[in-house]
C-alpha cells in the first residue's frame, strides 16, 4: 500500500512538474544560455555513443536478417527491415535508454546534490524558482535535441546495415539495392512516428530524473539511491510508454 502511495505521489508530482515547467516557458529567452548549455550536454556529448551503438545495432540487424532470410530468398528485403526497425522502434528506444543512463543520471545527481546541500532552498529564499532555472531549460533542450539524436541514430543505423549487407559473404547486397528496398517499404510516417516516440521518451526521462532529484532528502547515500531510482524508473517508463505510444500511433 505504501509503495502504491509512493508511485502515485511520484506520478502526480511529475505531472505537476511538467505543468509548472510549461508555465515558465515564456522565460526561455532569458534562460537561453542555460538552454544552450543543456543542448550541448544532452545532444553533443551523447552523440558519439549514440552513433557507435546505432551503427552496431544496424549492423547486427542486417546480419541477423541476412542469416534468417537467406534460406527464403528474401535477402533483398534486408534494407526495408533494418530501415523500419531503426526508424519505428530501435532508434527512439535506444536514444531514450542512452539518455536515461548518461544524461538522466547526471541530472538527478546534480539536482539531488543541490537539494541535499540546501542550494535549492537557497534559490527559494532568493525568490528564484528552481523549476524555472533548473528544470525548464533541460526540458526544452530535450525537446529540441532528442529528435535530432533519433534522426542521427536512424541514419547511422541504416548505414551500418548497408555496410554489413555489402561485405558479409552470405548477404552481399550492394548499397544501392539496400537503400532502394529501404525506400520502397518505408514512408515518411514511419520516421515521423519514431521521432514522436523519441520526443515523448525524452520528455519523460528528463521529467522523471528532475523530479526524483528535486525530491531527494538525506545525505550522500540518498543521492546515490536517487540516481539508481531515476535510471530504473526511466527505463521502465520508456518501455511502458513505448507500448502505449506505438498503439496510439498505429
Amino acid at each position: 500500500m505504501r509503495q502504491l502511495n509512493n508511485i502515485l505521489e511520484g506520478f502526480g508530482s511529475t505531472i505537476l512538474l511538467l505543468f509548472r515547467s510549461i508555465g515558465y516557458l515564456p522565460s526561455l529567452p532569458r534562460q537561453f544560455g542555460r538552454f544552450v548549455e543543456q543542448c550541448y550536454l544532452i545532444g553533443y556529448t551523447t552523440l558519439p555513443i549514440v552513433a557507435i551503438l546505432s551503427f552496431f545495432i544496424g549492423s547486427v540487424l542486417a546480419l541477423q536478417a541476412g542469416y534468417s532470410m537467406q534460406n527464403f530468398g528474401a535477402k533483398q528485403f534486408i534494407g526495408s527491415l533494418v530501415g523500419l526497425s531503426m526508424a519505428r522502434e530501435l532508434g527512439p528506444v535506444m536514444v531514450a535508454i542512452l539518455l536515461a543512463g548518461r544524461v538522466g543520471s547526471a541530472i538527478t545527481a546534480e539536482l539531488a546534490s543541490m537539494k541535499v546541500y540546501q542550494e535549492i532552498d537557497a534559490l527559494v529564499t532568493m525568490n528564484i524558482p528552481p523549476v524555472r532555472m533548473l528544470v525548464m531549460p533541460r526540458l526544452a533542450a530535450a525537446v529540441v535535441m532528442v529528435p535530432v539524436l533519433a534522426i542521427i541514430a536512424n541514419l547511422v543505423g541504416w548505414f551500418g546495415g548497408a555496410i554489413v549487407s555489402k561485405y558479409t559473404n552470405f548477404i552481399s547486397i550492394d548499397p544501392p539495392a539496400y537503400f532502394a528496398a529501404l525506400r520502397r517499404f518505408m514512408e515518411f510516417k514511419d520516421v515521423a512516428n519514431g521521432l514522436i516516440k523519441a520526443e515523448v521518451f525524452g520528455l519523460g526521462v528528463v521529467l522523471v530524473c528532475c523530479n526524483i532529484g528535486l525530491n531527494t532528502r538525506g545525505g550522500p547515500r540518498e543521492i546515490g539511491a536517487s540516481v539508481t531510482r531515476a535510471v530504473v524508473t526511466s527505463l521502465i517508463l520508456i518501455l511502458v510508454l513505448d507500448y502505449f505510444v506505438t498503439k496510439a500511433l498505429m
Binding site: 543541490m114 546541500y117 540546501q118 542550494e119 532552498d121 537557497a122 529564499t125 532568493m126
Partner: peptide, 10 residues
C-alpha cells in the same frame, strides 16, 4: 535573505 548554516553556496 537566509544565511544557511553550511553556507548553501552554489
Amino acid at each position: 535573505a537566509l544565511v544557511f548554516q553550511a553556507g548553501a553556496l552554489f
